[in-house]
Write a protein that binds this DNA or RNA. Structure first.
Lengths: 350, 350
DNA sequence: TTGAAAGCGCTAACAA
DNA sequence: TTGTTAGCGCTTTCAA
């Protein structure tokens, strides 16, 4: 090690200040000086010391990304998209994983990213009042991805989908097919990191039922904890009822896949005996021929990053961005087998 | 902001040096002084400036992780496990994604992590000679995850599985079931970032065939590019042969899942018509009842992180760690059906 | 065990 | 356009 800005300055025959300006591409440097500086830096294999640069400038050239995981599909996609945008803009992504309540607590009390990042992207962790305050006190731009709690939405930028509308579309699809007894496998709040999505999607589910004049049976609303295994168990629970639902809305594709497995294992067929619709359009959904509600995943990461970069550049937090979802009809949904009074046209995907 | 170490020193009635020592838990501080410092720091809500700290100490408290992606299952798992270990040890993970050759080139010429990290973990990117040199010149510990090229293995620590042995186990399983015509869906080198895994797994495949006295038919060795879609197409290619193999070894579970989809779409049954074995034990493998060769994923991330932390603490690079794989027999493999005539299967255009 | 003070390597304000 | 120079906020000798 050891090549400093002084060495470059000496070699280029200019001052360190000029070297600094030239290397950062600032405008007020003569072409000649710039050329000499670049040449000298190259010859000496010079790189700035990020810590010295940060110390002097106050900029960290890093963005913190907080996510519940990176191993699950959705988060991996979002983080990947964000990293790309950040690196392009010269920022490094610092990853902070929050896999359980304990770590979440520590993250927001210790704030390990304090003074280490120029901005913070929070993925799928609706902040409570305390957390919002803590993060706000960092004094850096914050962008939230996924649904947020009121109270933080006014202070931070956010990118999300409309979970209520998405769920509504899913259940409307089942209703349009003629289903009247529709179960739901929810994400579940308890041990998870209390996303708001489960509640929002439940709202959409109920709205759809209500709009169709269908009763809401709480016994048909079971929890799957967002996992495949949870989906399997939840479906088993539904099938064990004296009168199982003819269709099931799973709040995530992972749970839907679990549900399909249980249905198959029970010797039933989908959609003949039970229809299943998921949520996300997971990359594997197609393999299960799973009807689902697609959400733009990559785009959420990209937009969040773009917002962040804009805010770092001085832009205000802007309005919350709500991206559209899209119904993807595949083969796991169809008209109910028995008891359908009016026979709806059979959908193409079989 | 503005609370500096000086403020804490004043409030605690000690020097800044003592504050620094006390806050970092160094031994040579009296209990009394330490107590006062901690109290003062707490009251003032003081946090060190990482850049100032780094500038003065030379330590960055950050580890760079380079991976081809974080959106794919394997990488997400590894990165997640590593982040956990690093955070526990007080290090932040800086993520560098390398999704194509262009970025890979830039990563190793620009070395954006230069001087920003205390160590580098390289996941599934066997470094060529130039890259090895470039990374070595950083003068920081390097740990590689996944197979490596000779030439880098002597200089860096590494954690991996034995791909040759793993593939051998997979194909041996098929042979033991009575299969004699065994196809392979390989990972493919071309457009990807030239992992060595595809070649190693091919070697294991060939060894197994050779050991059983079976011929190697190059026409049964097709590429699937590590993706689901690639697996689908590759399987279609195999089924289109006048005499399709009775069993297929897919070099990844993702490709195996694609293969299963094609088999199903062709109206064939698994394992009755074709057996399929994968590699990885992807979290979704169970849902497909997929027989596979499991590799420890989380553990590779953990061990790599542990190695890294040890090396940062001064330990030498240590011997390469090779973790065992494990055959997981599920429902997609079985004995070959006795077939008299090779009936052309109806393939689905795909 | 403690404190004084010299850096660490750069950026930015100011002067030229 | 360029150079001078005072910080930026710590860590780490070295001396006490």
């Amino acid at each position: 090690m050891g090549v400093g800005i002084g060495d470059v300055a000496r070699r280029a025959g200019v001052s360190t200040a000029t070297v600094s300006r030239a290397l950062r591409g600032l405008p007020n440097v003569s072409d000649d000086a710039r050329r000499r500086v670049l040449a000298a830096a190259l010859e000496l294999d010079y790189v700035v010391s990020p810590s010295a640069s940060s110390l002097a400038s106050g900029r960290m050239a890093a963005i913190g990304v907080v996510a519940p995981s990176v191993a699950r599909w959705f988060f991996g996609q979002v983080v990947g998209a964000a990293e790309d945008a950040f690196r392009r803009a010269g920022y490094t992504l610092m990853l902070y994983l929050v896999e359980d309540q304990e770590r979440r607590r520590r993250l927001f009390t210790d704030l390990p990213m304090r003074r280490r990042v120029d901005g913070l992207v929070v993925v799928s962790l609706p902040l409570d009042r305390t957390e919002t305050d803590a993060v706000h006190r960092l004094g850096i731009p914050v962008v939230q991805v996924g649904s947020v709690r009121s109270g933080s939405v006014e202070r931070f930028a956010s990118v999300r989908i409309d979970d209520i509308a998405g769920a509504r579309v899913a259940v409307d699809h089942l209703i349009a097919l003629g289903h009247a007894e529709i179960g739901m496998i929810a994400g579940g709040l308890q041990e998870r990191l209390d996303f708001t999505a489960p509640e929002d999607r439940r709202t959409g589910y109920r709205h759809a039922l209500a709009a169709a004049g269908l009763p809401v049976d709480p016994a048909l609303d079971v929890e799957g904890g967002y996992t495949v295994a949870g989906g399997e168990q939840a479906m088993a629970q539904l099938l064990a009822r004296p009168r199982p639902p003819t269709a099931v809305f799973a709040q995530s594709d992972e749970m839907a896949m679990g549900a399909l497995t249980t249905i198959r294992a029970a010797g039933l067929r989908c959609p003949d005996d039970v229809s299943v619709i998921g949520f996300d359009d997971h990359e594997m959904a197609r393999l299960f021929d799973l009807t689902t509600v697609a959400q733009p995943v990559h785009e959420q990461g990209e937009l969040a990053a773009a917002q962040m970069l804009a805010m770092i550049a001085g832009a205000p937090a802007g309005e919350p961005v709500v991206l559209p979802t899209r119904l993807v009809v595949r083969g796991t949904t169809g008209p109910p087998a028995r008891r359908s009074v009016a026979k709806p046209p059979r959908t193409a995907a079989g």
